[in-house]
């Protein structure tokens, strides 16, 4: 079976490209049996949301002008 370090590498790559069918199959076989990597996988999705929110690109539609928001 695939190791955890390899599984996390594939999960990371899955954020940047489409994994092949074989990669997806091997990965889900691993995560099915490994709670740590299952958590890692869902936390990577959280991390992406956090990064986008931090950069502010998720908040563009709320009408606030961040340029002025924290002006002293």
């Amino acid at each position: 079976m695939m190791s955890c370090s390899k599984a996390t590498r594939l999960i990371s790559e899955g954020q940047d490209r489409d994994l092949t069918a074989t990669e997806r199959a091997r990965l889900s076989l691993h995560t099915m049996m490994c709670r740590s990597c299952r958590r890692f996988e869902s936390q990577m999705n959280v991390l992406r949301t956090l990064a986008r929110t931090f950069a502010g690109t998720d908040q563009g539609a709320d009408g606030n002008d961040p340029e002025d928001a924290d002006r002293p």
Binding site: C4, S5, R39, Q43, V46
Partner: peptide, 23 residues
């Protein structure tokens, strides 16, 4: 990771409490 690739016990990902609240 330990040699061969499994998580070290103390480094295993833990449950994350309420990410929505953190934000």
């Amino acid at each position: 990771f330990k040699r061969g690739g499994p998580w070290r016990r103390e480094q295993r990902p833990q449950h994350w409490r309420e990410p929505d609240e953190a934000m």
